[in-house]
Design a protein around this nucleic acid. Structure first.
Lengths: 235, 235
DNA sequence: GATGGCAAAGTGGCCTGACCAATTCTAATC
DNA sequence: GATTAGAATTGGTCAGGCCACTTTGCCATC
């Protein structure tokens, strides 16, 4: 019983179109942030109908490569393709996220301590200053996020960096953020500030071991405070 | 500088449709392997046009939730681990993947040692036997993959399990697999078998520390052998 | 000359209706 | 009962149209 599957002569059109567009990006013909030609123009260029272009764009959008802005155009995402933000609820909960971060981020932080650039250190300092000044206001979560993702980026491992960003997206999605501000108020802002300071200091000293240690402490504290929070606020 | 962003007026239609369909699956109204109603019927049920249904289906297909068979119908993917072929090349290379696995999988393996089920141990044994019998034939890579992803699943952390599967998909995509068989032949099959045996034994003894250690050794060996391989086969 | 407002052009969002190609089902035929 | 030819079903693709939103740039106003 031979079963040969040669020449998938004609894949579905939207896939072929999506690949062509993706190649444009990969080849650097269009750079992140750039706007692609309009759907109608693309349809004309590739000699396919507009619905086919739209289908391809949706595939690329789900893949995280492009971003569609109504009435404005289609733009190439900054940061390239990533683990797609699940269209469906991933079912991944806050504690799973924290458990994984506890494994991943200390090592990332240690790597970053060796590889971090001066510019990044500068930016991290600014972010820390912002945290101090914001002093627990809701905007602080965005700062926190940039702090962690920037460190991940400095580890110079794209896979790790994308994973950290994915985990933050999941966190937002999992409804954990809803309790964030309240948590900060309940627990007080200072412990969090101290922890971030320790991480920043370790990175500045480019001390991998201290960085690993500081990040571990930070995430352990976060886990504990999350546990207290969910204890008193059952889902 | 206030920046308010209220009322995310209705999302794009295809996303709402996709969510509805995804909910059907999640709620168990349609099970893996089932066929969904035809596009025309869905369009009529949800009171949207067929193109919108199609767009939603493409989004779900890219997400790996469904599978479209021309002329036959749309089917819910069997088993959570769908082999959705990434549409775009992530640009993540073999060494980044290995570096990340070296951080993640030892901890996963340690967790799995505490949480692994008897059924999973049984399956892991079978997989190891298959590896022995296949003795380096190309099919071995698929077995290797199932071995690692099953361990990840047994760690009972969905985020980690999904990440490990993602990394394998990236590996296939990054052209690393192309050299896999050749690598096995060059390096010999026995080291790999020994390493997997050690992992399996540690899991059976439910010894987290031994499991972590065994996985670390395995991945270090893989990294070294990959290094040798790429040394003599410049990209 | 700078400002503010408004209309036109451009863009994606969505729909209707149609035809084609692959698959599956049905029923007539042997 | 097995085979097979045709009909029905299903996804694949196209054409063209209308709407809502954004952006742009002209123009009246100050």
């Amino acid at each position: 019983m031979v079963k040969l599957e040669p020449l998938p002569s004609s894949e579905r059109l939207y896939i072929r179109v999506a690949r062509r567009i993706a190649d444009l990006v990969k080849a650097g013909d269009v750079k992140p942030g750039d706007r692609l030609p309009s759907e109608r123009v693309l349809a004309d260029m590739l000699q396919v109908s507009r619905p086919s272009i739209r289908e391809a764009m949706i595939a690329l959008e789900v893949s995280g490569l492009i971003e569609v802005r109504t009435g404005s155009g289609i733009f190439v995402t900054r940061g390239g393709s990533s683990i797609s933000t699940p269209l469906v609820d991933s079912g991944i909960g806050p504690f799973e996220i924290l458990e994984m971060r506890l494994v991943l981020e200390p090592e990332i932080c240690a790597l970053a301590a060796e590889r971090v650039s001066d510019a990044a250190l500068q930016r991290l300092s600014e972010l820390f200053q912002s945290m101090v000044e914001l002093n627990g206001r809701p905007e602080m979560e965005a700062i926190d996020r940039e702090f962690h993702t920037l460190i991940a980026a400095e580890a110079e491992n794209t896979a790790m960096a994308q994973t950290v960003e994915w985990l933050w997206r999941l966190r937002v999605q999992s409804g954990f953020s809803r309790g964030y501000h309240r948590l900060i108020v309940e627990e007080g802002i200072f412990p969090t500030l101290e922890e971030h300071k320790a991480i920043l200091d370790a990175l500045m000293k480019r001390d991998p071991e201290a960085a690993r240690q500081a990040m571990t402490s930070h995430l352990l504290a976060a886990t504990e405070s999350a546990a207290r929070h969910f204890e008193s606020n059952p889902a």
